[in-house]
Computed example of a mutant assay.
Amino acid sequence: MNEHEAKMAHPRMAAGVLFFDEVDRVLLVEPSYKDYRDIPGGYVERGESPLRACAREVQEELGIAPRIGRLLVVDWAPNPGEGDKVLYLFDGGLLGAEQRRRVRIQADELRGYDFHPAERLPELTIPRLVRRITAGIRARADGSTVYLEHGEPPTLGGT
């Protein structure tokens, strides 16, 4: 490995999705291995795109294969224990009643799922995920794609 390669970042990548119900509540899953709720998604595997990883994780976790929409958020989120991460958040759109009836949760990883109003997110999940989901909801509403660092818009000093 040369000096240049030694300096290169090798971040883990993960991809998640925002699904909504008919009254714009967001879907959160309840992982059995975490003490907070999360969005459907997971790590990107070698050779897999973030979009394909997102679709695969939804299929594995919820047992459904809805169309995954456009990219809403990219969040650089380093973690002291796990290293650098780049997290992608996609728009899953409306998860209608028919699709919800077909949901079969992955029992060995999830205790359940439900839809929640955005204002309840801070009591249900961790702050950086609340920031990412909130940014995703705004990006979905205004048609933008947002870049975040630690779930927040970056600030770069300029002259």
Rank of each mutant, 00 (worst) to 15 (best):
P78W: 04
G112A: 04
E123F: 06
I133P: 04
H4W: 06
D142C: 08
K34D: 10
R120T: 10
A9V: 07
Q59F: 09
R46M: 08
T155A: 14
Q99I: 03
E3N: 13
V58F: 06
R138G: 10
L148W: 09
P31N: 06
W76R: 13
R111V: 02
R131A: 14
G83P: 04
Y113P: 01
W76F: 15
R52A: 15
D75A: 07
D35P: 07
E48K: 10
M1H: 08
R56P: 05
V23M: 11
S49Q: 08
E109Y: 12
R138Q: 14
Q59R: 15
V86H: 02
A139R: 08
I64Q: 09
I39Q: 04
A14T: 14
V58L: 03
L124R: 03
Y147C: 00
P80Y: 04
D114K: 09
L156W: 12
Q106S: 05
S144M: 01
E123H: 07
L72Y: 01
A141Y: 00
D91L: 06
E57F: 09
G16R: 07
L148M: 11
D142Y: 05
E48I: 09
Y33A: 12
D142E: 15
D108G: 02
H150A: 11
G157K: 14
E22I: 01
K34F: 13
D38Q: 12
L18Y: 03
P122G: 08
G136F: 08
K34S: 10
E109R: 12
A53F: 08
G157M: 10
D142S: 06
G112C: 03
P40D: 03
F19E: 02
Y33M: 04
Y43N: 12
N2C: 08
A97H: 07
I68K: 06
E82D: 05
P66H: 08
N2A: 03
R138H: 08
A141K: 14
V44T: 10
S49K: 13
A141N: 09
L110V: 08
A65E: 15
R67Q: 13
L18H: 07
L95N: 02
R46F: 11
L28P: 03
I64N: 06
K34V: 05
E3F: 11
S144E: 14
T159P: 13
L62G: 05
K34W: 02
G93P: 04
H10R: 15
R12Y: 09
Q59W: 07
R37P: 02
G93M: 07
Y36N: 14
L27V: 11
M8D: 00
Y88F: 15
V26H: 05
T155D: 04
P153F: 13
W76K: 09
R102N: 10
L124Y: 02
P78K: 05
A97L: 03
M13K: 11
D75P: 05
G69K: 04
E48N: 11
A77Y: 07
V73M: 11
D21L: 03
D35A: 14
L129C: 06
G112R: 02
